[in-house]
Amino acid sequence: MNCEKKVAFENLGNLANDDITGAAFSSPGSVDTKAGVVKGFSAMPYLHHFSIVQELTEALDVPVTFENDAYCAALAESWQGAARGVQNAIFIVIGSGIGGAIISEGKILKGRNLFGGEFGYMMMDAEYSFSDLASPVNTARRYTEESGSQIAISGQELFERADRGESLAQKHVDQMLDALGRGIQMLSVVLNPDRVLLGGAISERDGLLEEVTQRAHGYLKRTQATDVVLDIETCQFRNQANLLGAVAAHYSQTRQ
C-alpha cells in the first residue's frame, strides 16, 4: 500500500468503534462486488484497480461493501423512493459526468462487464459523449473556455449567470438541457422504461424537470416515436439517494 492510501485508511480506522458494525461505500466506476475492486475509471482514480474492499476491511475491522454510486441511487429509489413498485426504470444521475442505472423486472441490470447503465459513454455525435454534453461540470468548463476567462466556475454559477440574462451562459445551459432531452429520447426508445428518474444536485433546480421533459417529447415527435409514453420524475432522496442505497447494497451483500 502506498503512503497516501495508508494514511487515509489509518484515518478511517480511527473512526471505528464498537457501535459501528459495517461500512457501506457508494463509489464511481464499475464496481466488481465479488472481487472487491473498482474497475473502469472516474474523476477519482485513486479508487481504482486494487483490492480496496479488502484493505478497508482490514483498516476498519468491520465488513465493508462497495457499490456503484448510480446503482446505489437506483437501489434507494426502488426500495423506498420514487421508483418503489416500478418494475422497469432508468436512472440518470447528473453530476461531474453522467451516471446511470437500469432497473429491469425489479432488479439492477449490471451487464456482462458491469457497464449496464453507463449512459455517460454514449456518443451524442462524432466528438462528444453524453457526459461531455449533459454534465453541468463539463458544460461550465466549455463556457469558461469560450469566454476566455482564466477563472473556472461551477455548474451552479453557470446557471446563476444564465438566470441573470448573460447570453453566453444561456447558450451553454440551453445546449446542456437539449443534450439531456436527446439522451432521454434515445434511452426511452431503446429501453422503453415505465419511468425515468433524474438525480444529482442539478435535478433539484426549479423548472429543469419540465424543460428537459419538453425537449425529450420534442425529439420523440421529431423521430415519430410518439407512442412512447414518458414518465419523468426526480429522485425522491435527491443527493442522499446514493448514501441510502449504499446501505441497501450493504445489507444485500453481507447477507448473501
Rank of each mutant, 00 (worst) to 15 (best):
M1H: 13
K5F: 07
V7C: 08
A8V: 00
E10K: 00
E10W: 05
E10P: 05
N11D: 15
L12G: 14
G13M: 06
L15H: 10
A16G: 07
I20W: 07
T21R: 12
A24L: 03
S26W: 09
S27C: 15
S30P: 00
G36I: 02
V38C: 05
K39F: 02
F41T: 11
S42C: 13
A43E: 04
A43F: 09
M44L: 11
L47D: 01
L47S: 03
L47Q: 03
L47C: 03
F50P: 05
S51H: 14
I52N: 01
E55F: 00
E58C: 09
A59M: 06
D61S: 15
T65S: 11
F66H: 11
E67D: 15
N68K: 00
A70Q: 04
A73W: 01
A73S: 10
L75H: 02
S78T: 10
W79R: 03
R84S: 07
V86A: 04
Q87E: 15
Q87Y: 08
Q87W: 07
I90D: 00
I90M: 04
I92L: 11
I92S: 03
I94F: 09
S96L: 00
G99D: 06
G100P: 08
A101Y: 02
S104Y: 06
E105H: 14
E105F: 08
G106Y: 04
I108C: 09
N113I: 09
G116E: 10
E118Q: 11
F119Y: 05
M122W: 03
A126G: 04
E127V: 05
S129G: 05
L133I: 00
A134V: 14
A134Q: 10
V137H: 12
A140N: 12
A140T: 07
R142F: 08
R142M: 08
T144G: 09
E145K: 13
G148C: 11
S149Q: 11
S149I: 10
S149C: 10
Q150D: 15
Q150I: 13
A152G: 13
I153L: 14
Q156M: 10
L158F: 08
F159L: 15
E160M: 10
E160L: 11
R161T: 13
G165A: 13
E166R: 12
S167D: 15
A169Y: 09
K171Y: 12
K171P: 05
V173I: 14
V173A: 09
L177I: 14
L177W: 06
A179F: 00
G181Q: 04
R182M: 06
G183L: 03
I184R: 01
V189W: 08
L191W: 03
V196Y: 07
L197A: 04
L197S: 02
G200M: 00
I202C: 05
D206K: 05
L209D: 04
E211S: 15
T213A: 07
Q214D: 15
Q214I: 12
Q214H: 14
R215Q: 07
A216D: 04
Y219E: 03
L220Y: 09
K221N: 11
T223H: 12
Q224P: 00
V229H: 08
I232N: 06
T234Q: 08
Q240W: 05
L243A: 13
L244Q: 10
A246P: 02
A248C: 14
H250Q: 13
H250V: 10
H250P: 11
Y251W: 13
T254G: 12
R255Q: 15
